[in-house]
Design a binder for these strands. Structure first.
Lengths: 252, 252
DNA sequence: CTAACGTTTTTCCAACTGGTCAAATTTCCG
DNA sequence: CGGAAATTTGACCAGTTGGAAAAACGTTAG
């Protein structure tokens, strides 16, 4: 019997390019002409306005480019010029769509979060523990493979001490993890999983999967030309499945 | 019988402050007066010169401060001014000891690497597999706890694509991992460990342990006030030990 | 066609950046 | 002590950075 081959879903083809996760619709273009306005209405919460085709396109170009740059150099290390060039437009042109560097960054991050946490959200208390966890690991690994820039953007923010998302970590994220930890604990109580700290289990899943995005250079360098190719995600999936299920110690 | 409490060695006391890993002695101070010199001798490899007390002290102050700044903001995101201020001296003064920003960074990284890889180097083929791996995990976790800035510095370099250390990754690091992977494979052949890809095993150990340094903010935010305190490393050690040894699936 | 709007470009600026240099100050050593 | 060497400082500089302003250009509905 051949070893169980863990199938992880095919990556999107290059012809159908992976689109940026962060596509949250948002405020309309910040118009110079409207600069002083909105002060009377408290939080500037007029009607969202329908966004023209050009606006949508250009904003997407910018966010796509910004993701590239921010994910490699972090917030401080990235420059508007770099992003503008990558997006194929001039700096003032870019600033016409996003008034400040920070605005771009924040849009990226907030657009990212929902998708980023989706796999964990989907973990279902009524499901079978083992398949649920296996599938969570697999989905997380797929995200590392298909959205490595998003992963690195997030990692960069963490390394800086998360100054821009700390509230969300202590709020939404903690709440979600608390909830799922409770579910996992329940499974353990039923004897369907070995007893272990559910929080650290979640950390371990995050760490091992995101590692393949964040430390990609290192992974590829160490695996070398032959083993570091496209197959490495299959290998990783297979390995992680066995690690999380059975560990290393043989049953004597 | 109480659950086995994994002991991880005590952190250095605050009174005996953790010294920077990177303390490689190196070139003497780059003297303005000697600027043009050294061109005749090929690589400027005169005698290393003994370094005065002040030189050692100031260089250490600078490296210590630089580690703080670089590890949070990456190379591009860090400024000499920040480092100088953190080190309690003026920018020109700092530049008297290290002629360029990059010099500081490189010294930091090269001084770090040896120590960073020491735990893996120590993994011994003639030892018992299970204790060897357990102890490797423990040591790695201790390093994440005691040298989080070093871990973050390294992570930052990886996120940027490792432009300054890629050679070392493909050279020394790959060689070391290849060697240890062979040892682990040997152990598996003897039936002393469950069969699994040794490269991905090493990645998993790196990822899970370094996570506690690199994503420290997140870990603390999610664990909350009560569980995120100093005990979290004990909990992590305990969890990782069980995960890597036995996995999650109960033996039916 | 044209006025009104949305978009793009050119020009500009003040703050910050990495780095230099000579002068002033301190330390070291006989 | 006295002077040479080592160290520190203040002034400076050229290039980059985030961003503002306004003029120029394009598009489209009437």
């Amino acid at each position: 019997m051949p070893p169980i081959k863990v199938k992880i879903a095919d990556p999107p083809s290059p012809a159908d390019p992976v689109e940026t996760i962060a596509q949250a619709q948002g405020q309309p273009v910040a118009k110079r002409a409207l600069k002083g306005a909105g002060k009377g209405t408290g939080k500037g919460a007029g009607k969202p306005k329908p966004l023209t085709r050009i606006q949508r396109e250009k904003q997407d170009q910018i966010l796509e480019a910004a993701l590239d740059i921010f994910s490699r150099h972090g917030f401080r290390g990235a420059t508007i010029d770099q992003i503008a060039e990558q997006a194929g437009m001039s700096k003032p042109n870019l600033l016409y769509y996003f008034p400040r560097k920070e605005t771009i960054y924040k849009r990226l991050i907030s657009g990212l979060l929902e998708t980023w946490l989706a796999p964990l959200s989907e973990m279902d208390a009524s499901g079978d523990p083992i398949p649920e966890i296996r599938s969570y690991i697999r989905r997380k690994l797929e995200m590392a493979r298909d959205f490595p820039r998003e992963s690195r953007l997030f990692a960069n923010e963490m390394l800086e001490g998360a100054p821009r998302v700390i509230d969300m970590l202590e709020g939404e994220l903690k709440a979600l993890v608390d909830e799922k930890a409770k579910i996992i604990l329940g499974w353990m109580d039923e004897g369907k999983l070995n007893r272990a700290d559910p929080y650290h289990l979640i950390f371990a899943i995050w760490a091992t999967t995101q590692h393949y995005a964040d430390f990609d250079v290192q992974v590829r360098a160490v695996l070398g030309r032959d083993r570091g190719g496209d197959g490495r995600y299959e290998d990783a999936a297979h390995f992680l499945e066995r690690l999380f299920m059975h560990g290393l110690q043989p049953r004597r």
